[in-house]
Design a protein around this nucleic acid. Structure first.
Length: 284
DNA sequence: CTAGGGTTAGCG
DNA sequence: CGCTAACCCTAG
């Protein structure tokens, strides 16, 4: 009898959003103590705040993706978060208008895609595809850069951006520098040792996690072919051809990150090396 | 104190 | 009757 269930008022939600923007996610006690919000939130506890935040996140994810994502994964982080570029549409509840504290996974995916667009940072998906291309050609003496780029284009089934070849060239050089692949004449190929470590899961795993979309499978067509078609249809449906595919792949990558700690280390290393060698090599 | 799972009230 | 939002319980 103690609780008639108080529904949250719009002002309360707003106070909560502002509080999160100011103090960060998880700082419920601070938000409640802050003079700016204490009044509006006077009959809410820190637990209420936490639960409300959880509901807001769930609501947003419910509207943006049909199937509920099991791990919103909200890390503790500062009020100052990077600029978003995704518009999760504010219809029912706008989780946050100015500060993107919500949807970390998606946001991270999109910002890294935008980085790929700018060519400023290394895209680890591309590296994975490079390895895949090279391992597909392992019987031969390697692939030249043109073949690698077109392999990746075929993989994605759409045309890559103009600067993609250039970016790929830079990545190849970097991988050679790191000793992960080798260059013979103008062709690149895998080193035997790097095969086991970097590529065990790409072929099978990656495409098996694509969204389920009805696709006709012709006789003799491999599942992978069908998966590629599915990926293409996803892209087409969302009218974001190239980047939608990257988005799907990025999401897969992010979920893998959580499953595999050593993978995290490796990717972090690549990012770091990528940034460093970009600074060193591409200053001109 | 917080995160996350569990429970229940209200609504369509 | 299923779903969601508010509320409860508890380990860490």
């Amino acid at each position: 009898m103690g609780n008639p269930k108080q529904k949250w008022k719009a002002e309360e939600e707003e106070a909560l959003r502002d509080g999160i923007a100011k103090h960060g996610v998880g700082k419920w006690k601070f938000i409640l103590q802050d003079p700016d919000f204490r009044i509006l939130l006077k009959n809410r506890t820190n637990i209420d705040l936490k639960d409300k935040y959880r509901n807001m996140v769930a609501a947003v994810q419910g509207t943006s993706t049909r199937t509920r994502t099991p791990k919103p994964k909200v890390t503790q982080d500062a009020p100052a978060t990077p600029a978003p570029l995704v518009n999760i549409q504010p219809s029912p509840v706008i989780p946050i208008a100015r500060e993107p504290v919500f949807n970390h996974v998606k946001e991270e995916a999109v910002t890294s895609i935008s980085d790929a667009l700018n060519g400023s940072r290394c895209n680890t998906d591309t590296i994975e595809m490079i390895f895949e291309a090279l391992s597909a050609a392992k019987e031969q003496k390697g692939m030249d850069i043109g073949s690698i780029v077109s392999y990746i284009e075929q993989r994605i089934e759409i045309e890559a951006p103009q600067n993609f070849r250039k970016q790929t060239g830079a990545r190849l050089r970097r991988l050679v520098q790191q000793g992960r692949i080798e260059k013979v004449e103008s062709c690149y190929r895998l080193k035997n040792t790097s095969l086991a470590e970097t590529n065990p899961r790409t072929q099978k795993d990656m495409w098996s996690r694509l969204p389920l979309i009805p696709v006709h499978v012709k006789m003799g067509e491999s599942l992978e072919e069908a998966a590629k078609t599915a990926a293409y249809k996803v892209a087409e449906a969302e009218e974001k051809t190239y980047f939608a595919v990257l988005c799907v792949r990025e999401a897969e990558r992010l979920s893998r990150l959580q499953e595999e700690a050593d993978s995290v280390l490796q990717l972090a290393q690549e990012l770091y090396d990528g940034c460093r060698s970009n600074n060193v090599l591409l200053v001109a």
